[in-house]
Amino acid sequence: MKRGLHKTALLLLLLFSLIVVNSCKSKINAAHKKVAIIVSTLNNPWFVFLAENAAAKAKELGYETKIFDSQNNTALETDHFENAIASGYNAILFNPTDANGSIANVLKAKEVGVPVFCMDREVNSTEAATSQILSDSYSGCVALGKYFVQQLNKNGKYVELLGLVGDNNTWNRSKGFHEVVDNYPGLKMVAQQSADFDRNKGMEVLESILQAHGDISAVFCGNDAMAMGAYQALVSAGKEKNVKVFGFDGAEDVINAIAEGKITATGMQFPKVMAYTAAIFADEYFKGRRDFPKKMPVAVEMVTKENIKDYTAYGKKEGQ
C-alpha cells in the first residue's frame, strides 16, 4: 500500500516537473523570439497608435519588439527590412508605404523564412505576406459617399484630397466615395489633389485650391489628418461654417471635432483590432500554425453627429 502511494507520488512529481520544464521552455523560446514592427510613418498619431498597440500585444505574448519608422520612404523601409533580418527578428508586423514598391521587401523576408503580417495597408501580391489584415476602406467610403450626397442634397461643388498615390487605401477610399457620388451630376468635383495623408500638406493644398474655388460646399479627405488640415485652411479663409469636411480614420481630434460640429463625418477604423490580430497571428505562426487567410478585412463604421455617442477615438471602447 505504502509502496503504491510512493509510486503515485513519484509519478505525480515527474509529471509536475515535466510541465514546469515545458512551460519554462516555451517561455524561453518566446523570450528569444523578436518581432519587428515596421510602419509607414510615425508622423501621424493614427500610425503611432497602430505601431504601439502591435508592439504592446507582441510584448504581452512574450516577445522582444522594436518599432521602425519608414517615414513614407520605400528606400528607408528596405533598410529597415535588411536591418530587421540581419538582427535576427523572427517576424515582421508591417504597415507598407507602397502597395507595389513594398512587395520586394516582403519577399526578401519571406526568402529567409521570416513571416510578414501586413496591418491596415496591403501589398499587391497574395504570395508575399503571410497574411494581410486590412480595413475595408471601400465599404467605409461608400457609406461616407451616401451620407455626403444626402448632406449636400445632391448638389454643390466639392474638393477631394487624396492620400499617398502609391497606396491602395488611397484608391479604395476614393473609389468607394466616387461609386456613390459620381451618380449625381449636381455634385461637381472642382479639384482632386494628393496631400499624402499629411495634415500640413492637406492645409496647404486646400489653401491654394480655395483661391480658385471659393464657392465649394464640401471637402472629402482620404484620412483624418488631411481633414484636420483642410478644416484649418477653411478657418483661415473664414469658410469653416459653409463647407462640410469629411475624413477617414477615427482619429482623436476628428472624433472631438465631430462632437463639436466642426467635421461632418469620418470612417472609424479599428487599428487596435488590426494590430492585435497581427501580433496574435505572429504568435500562432511561431507555434506552428500555417493556414492563415491571405487577406482579413476589418469592417469600417461611419461616425456622424447622430451616432457619435457610440464611439471614441480609434474605435476604442470606454475604459480602454
Binding site: E122, N124, S125, T126, L134, Y138, N168, W171, N172, K175, G176, P293, K294, K295, P297
Partner: peptide, 12 residues
C-alpha cells in the same frame, strides 16, 4: 477575397 490579389479588383 483570397481569390483576388488586389483589393481594388475585389471592390470593382
Amino acid at each position: 477575397i483570397n481569390e483576388f490579389s488586389n483589393t481594388m479588383d475585389f471592390n470593382n
